[in-house]
């Protein structure tokens, strides 16, 4: 496929709030990104507004506070997606199409049971959880991510590269089943499912604030074993351009300073993947 023919579905619901900048990032790279309300996929709208997951080659679940996150973050939305289009989604994933979740979207993918995907495409119950930050607070701060394993959203990012992307969440601490942490962690490592880990400016796996939530093994993002479903807490769409970075005024030396920042590679990678695969 050519990039201009790729249709990206950026799914929204009441309370999602990063859909504009997520769609913008795809559009900047030439893809046709559409912001779609869940109701448009369930058919509860006028004929001309109806859509089907099969119309798209990439599904993105953006950040926000879907349905307010008044119960576990992402849980309400996941339940709604599952009951409305669960079957379509399984098919979409098994066909190898990429599904990405950022921040609240990551929480949704975990609650849906499509991440980590250890027990099949979509587990009946969530296998892991993204729980409340150790600080017990919402935290909006720059984070540094070391790229450890490649998935379809990171193909253009060299392994070992450290990217600057901000985090902004209250529930981002990746937590594995109590008493079975080592077993689960071992599987994630063996399957090369740990894509990003939080590091400090020296590249070390350090604690708070560089690990902003207390996530186990400094995990910032994981994919399914096949690598086409990927969720991460930090926001690549907020690091698309250099001017979005927190310290860009310190790095203005060269006159042809890079216009883009590390987050762009996330979007470019998945579009490359779709182009080559479909």
């Amino acid at each position: 496929m050519k990039v201009k023919d790729i249709r990206v579905c950026v799914l929204r619901l009441e309370g999602t709030n990063c859909e504009e900048e997520t769609a913008y990032s795809f559009r900047q790279l030439g893809a046709d990104a559409e912001i779609i309300h869940l109701k448009q996929l369930t058919g509860d709208v006028r004929e001309d507004e109806k859509r089907s997951l099969g119309d798209y080659q990439c599904l993105m679940i953006p950040g926000g506070f879907s349905s307010g996150d008044y119960v576990r973050a992402g849980a309400i939305w996941a339940a709604r997606v599952k009951s409305a289009i669960g079957g379509d989604l399984i098919e979409f994933i098994e066909d190898g199409y990429p599904v990405g979740g950022i921040c609240n979207g990551f929480q949704v993918l975990v609650e849906l049971g499509v991440l980590p995907g250890l027990g099949g495409t979509m587990a009946a119950e969530p296998e892991i959880a993204l729980t409340i930050n150790d600080s017990d607070r919402f935290e909006c701060r720059p984070t540094l991510l070391e790229h450890e394993n490649t998935c379809v959203f990171t193909g253009s990012i060299p392994v070992g590269m450290i990217s600057l992307m901000p985090s902004a969440h209250a529930e981002g601490k990746l937590t594995l089943p109590l008493g079975e942490e080592d077993k689960y962690l071992g599987k994630l490592i063996d399957n090369n499912q740990i894509v990003f880990r939080y590091v400090d400016p020296d590249g070390e796996y350090s604690g708070y604030p560089w690990n902003p939530n207390g996530s186990i093994y400094n995990i910032a993002g994981i994919c399914n074993p096949e690598g086409n479903v990927f969720g991460m807490m930090p926001h690549p769409e907020r690091a698309y351009e250099r001017l979005m970075l927190p310290d860009w005024t310190r790095n203005t030396g060269s006159s042809n300073a890079e216009e883009y920042a590390d987050g762009r590679l996330y979007f470019a990678s998945v579009l490359d993947y779709v182009c080559s695969k479909f």
Binding site: R137, F138, E139, C140, D247
Partner: peptide, 25 residues
């Protein structure tokens, strides 16, 4: 206070309320 507020949602906050070297703002 500042870090509890999402001060960069919409990805259009060019100059942020905390400024400086990473980790030292």
């Amino acid at each position: 206070v500042i870090r509890q507020y999402d001060h960069e949602v919409r990805a259009s906050t060019i100059i942020k309320p905390l400024q400086g070297k990473l980790g030292y703002s």
